[in-house]
Amino acid sequence: MEDLKKENDLLEDILARFDVEGQVQRERRIWVKASEENLTSICKFLKEMGFEHLSAISVTDWLEEEELELTYHLWSYDERVLLTIKTRISRENPVIPSVSPIWDRSAQVHEREMHEMFGVKFEGNNDMAPLFLEDWNGPPPFRKDFDWREYVKKEYYSKDNEREAVYYE
């Protein structure tokens, strides 16, 4: 039998303070679903709780539901717990407060990447310059409605080129 006391105590602490959904999946693994509004406050609270390592921010594109899901992976060195916060924002107007005032540079670079790949705007992050793509003029490439074949045909290939005409057939 796994002893989940540490995890359950942590989750109870969070649920007592914020209006969020949470779940202890297994040992050292907690999931929290937060809304856009209380993301900043819950992040601040978790940082003080000892979740000082932001390992990654990722984005999932839910095309049918017209939402972008942001996932923040946090690690606590004291508790040895991985806590994941999920937040959904609208796909049309993807704006979310930045967590870079809380985790500083480790958040900054992840947000910069997600801004480039998914077009999410992080309010409060002061450097959103392109990270990987150079001279990019297309839509954010990791979005599901981005048709990269059409883009490649338009940008790289030519119908008149003998060896490339086959792509247009």
Binding site: G138, Y151, V152, E164
Partner: peptide, 15 residues
């Protein structure tokens, strides 16, 4: 020559 297996990648040089 052609991008090889990355022929339809948005981020690689084709020629």
């Amino acid at each position: 020559m052609t991008g090889g297996m990355y022929w339809d990648s948005y981020n690689t040089i084709k020629r």
